[in-house]
Design a binder for these strands. Sequence first.
DNA 1: ATTTGCTTTTGTCTAGGACAAATGACTATA
DNA 2: TATAGTCATTTGTCCTAGACAAAAGCAAAT
Lengths: 305, 305
Amino acid sequence: MNQPVNLFASIDEISRDIGVGKDTLRVWERRYGFPQPIRNDKGERSYPREQWDRLRTISRLLDRGYRPGNVVALTAAQLDALATQEQLDTTAVEAPQLDALIDSVRQGDVGQLQQCLSTKLQQQGAQQFVLNTAAPLLEQTGNAWASGQLPIYMEHLITHHLGRTLQQAAIECQPSEQGLQVLLTTLPGERHGMGLMMVDLLLTAQGTRTFNLGVETPVDELIRACEAIQPQVLALSFSSVQKRAALIGQLRELSLKIPASVVILIGGEGVAKLRMIPQRIRVVKKLDQLESTLNAIGKQIKNSS
Amino acid sequence: MNQPVNLFASIDEISRDIGVGKDTLRVWERRYGFPQPIRNDKGERSYPREQWDRLRTISRLLDRGYRPGNVVALTAAQLDALATQEQLDTTAVEAPQLDALIDSVRQGDVGQLQQCLSTKLQQQGAQQFVLNTAAPLLEQTGNAWASGQLPIYMEHLITHHLGRTLQQAAIECQPSEQGLQVLLTTLPGERHGMGLMMVDLLLTAQGTRTFNLGVETPVDELIRACEAIQPQVLALSFSSVQKRAALIGQLRELSLKIPASVVILIGGEGVAKLRMIPQRIRVVKKLDQLESTLNAIGKQIKNSS
DNA sequence: ATTTGCTTTTGTCTAGGACAAATGACTATA
DNA sequence: TATAGTCATTTGTCCTAGACAAAAGCAAAT
């Protein structure tokens, strides 16, 4: 009764679920011998549940910087060992409380989640809420999902309510009329909007006026948006970077074509390892550095004007 | 200065932007002779801006029920003729006001947009706001984008603020403790969450308690979610249906494996043409029928208990 | 400690074939 | 007139196997 319902999944489902291209899945099979799906009557790949789970773990490890050649071919046991080790390494400060939160969702009590988030928001204020609750909760949830402890629908549920709370908080902030104007988005390929919303709230709470374009704005559109809105800062969020080359290219294009008066800011876990970043682009490696960075920019602009 | 910046786009960009698979793009080229991208120095397809625009129009027409064989090979002029015709057919009631709204965004005045949405929400109340403003605005925006009148970043901007307004409205509603509980999501492949949010607000405004799982919840996860949350109603939203077969299959699976006590509700533009829908699934073809349908369900459940 | 060059790894693209599901047109039945 | 059944056509997705450039790792030299 509580068994997984779909024992097998198509390459399309797998690809979407773990965020790895179909071509890549096929080439892994060719090169590393894993995954090794059975074929259905049409000759199409059909991935058993167990391989699906394993691929999910692999995908997570790749996000952490491991390389396919070193993890794709590992046995399930080796993989789990690595995964738990990784997870321990990054356990957050407020872990127990967040675990309790996730547990409440696990038991079907969504009201509890919503209420708890609101309470924490009240207690901590917007900025601390983002740094101490929202970000770690997201991380924790992701870990729980990756290790199969949390079904994806619960991750959805948590994400949704977290987003809701963030947005509400942002609406309640009164942006000062004369503060900085920040244009906020992600580049094509980055579908995670959560980081965006956290940044949005952080900035809004600080009195900055934000224009959140949502996810995946094409570069040329972004350039046009800058011309139309004329912000002082353009902030881009990256959760994980798959195509470093494309990204660098896009950044370079931006740095050439965006008016020099606009400060370009990039941040998120995905940019930590990047090199070859064009000069004028400033990197914010951690969320808690955002505020000070922005203050610095504010002063800088004030002085120069 | 106001010219498009990227004169050429890769197959990946095109595919993501217009929502058509890469394989499909290649096979269109083979079969219909369009698009006919030039090749870059690596031999890869490189789509000129003009073909990109044309593909976007085509994609829109396909959503309206046209078939590839009949529209992909058309000349740009023929295509435009068809598109404008289609657009005229569906012009909404409150069009002029909405056009003004879109115009304000076009001129870079986002504050105006946000404020206008809030005002309309206050004036009309949640339900009328969804029916008369949100839904038509989305439609109108989509049309403007498809015909190239509105850059995609503006569509993003509008969508974002609309979503924000909807969520805020939903938060302000007080769900009655004893009303219906509705689980809300989309199936994998349907990435449009806007319909979801509109439905969420409509229901919440009505006193229903909603659990919004966000987009693309896999079927088996959905089944588990139903077991955990035990809602009275499961509502699924579809904006456009690409793979009818897969959808019907998923619906059938749901109808078999979801407890019989749960009413399954599907709605959205995508389901209007569906046949072969399993008996127990109820279809809501238009947003304004949602309220009465849900009331009926509420009574039905009350009587039977 | 940073730059330069070399080797291996890795993701994505290409071509053309195949096939089942979906659609549309046509026919036969109530 | 409407509904159900049959057949041909249309259409999206998957397949194989090869190719290649960009990224990452590593070593040597500045």
